[in-house]
């Protein structure tokens, strides 16, 4: 890898760790001007940064503000680089789609937002249905968008029962076998996922990313 590019990727990576959105905008534009491969910049600069933040968060060396700022920095950078990707058919690649939302009766936004942000910062196309989402809406949107994953969040033990209705709805419409369902939120657990017939339990935003990446066959290349 040429020296300038290597230095550039390192700068991009650090920008994410610092959560500097303005700098990310500047670097993304510079990348386009210099003709760097936008995927490489996303992969080895931005996403590598947010993954490092994820590690730091898990070990308790950084917290929600740093994680949110870092993820937003990545999104800002990606949004600029994506314009080039969409224009240039030779480098077009399809990103796995994910639908996410908080279940009916529950208006908790923060955990779901963090998972959505981290997923999109890691290169997925995320459709966020918001909070208090009815089971029928989850099913309808799955039918419409055909995502690879459906992520359902619940923070209340009372409302998490509504997740069962989503799974039933998917079964009835014949969509169940076509997507993977992941549940998350404070009261959810591996046992809960199993009990309602979901595929995965995502313990936190980082594990949600890990699971979806693994399942999409999207493993990080070395170097």
């Amino acid at each position: 890898m040429e020296k300038n590019l290597k230095l550039f990727l390192e700068k991009t990576y650090n920008t994410v760790l610092e959560g500097n959105k303005e700098e990310a905008v500047r670097l993304a534009r510079e990348a386009l001007r210099s003709g760097y491969d936008p995927y490489l910049v996303i992969d080895k600069g931005l996403v590598r940064g947010v993954q490092e933040l994820g590690k730091l968060w898990e070990e308790g060396s950084c917290f929600l503000p740093e994680l949110v700022l870092g993820a937003e920095t990545v999104k800002t950078g990606i949004s600029i680089l994506q314009k080039r990707i969409l224009k240039d058919k030779s480098i077009k690649r399809s990103l796995p789609k994910i639908i996410i939302g908080t279940i009916e009766g529950d208006i908790h936004d923060i955990g779901k937002m963090l998972v959505a942000t981290m997923l999109s910062a890691n290169g997925f196309e995320v459709i966020d249905l918001g909070v208090d989402v009815k089971a029928e809406v989850f099913v309808k949107m799955t039918e419409k968008h055909r995502p690879r994953f459906l992520c359902i969040s619940s923070l209340l033990t009372t409302t998490m029962q509504n997740e069962v209705k989503v799974i039933e709805g998917l079964r009835k419409t014949g969509l169940r076998g076509k997507i993977k369902v992941m549940v998350g939120g404070a009261p959810a657990s591996q046992e809960w996922a199993k009990e309602i017939g979901a595929d995965f339990y995502g313990e936190n935003a980082i594990s949600a990313v890990r699971i979806t990446q693994k399942e999409s066959g999207y493993e990080k290349k070395g170097g």
Binding site: E59, G60, S61, C62, L64, P65, E66
Partner: peptide, 10 residues
């Protein structure tokens, strides 16, 4: 957390 007790905001 592995490094002690913190609020979610750190």
């Amino acid at each position: 957390k592995p490094k002690g007790y913190f609020t979610i905001m750190g």
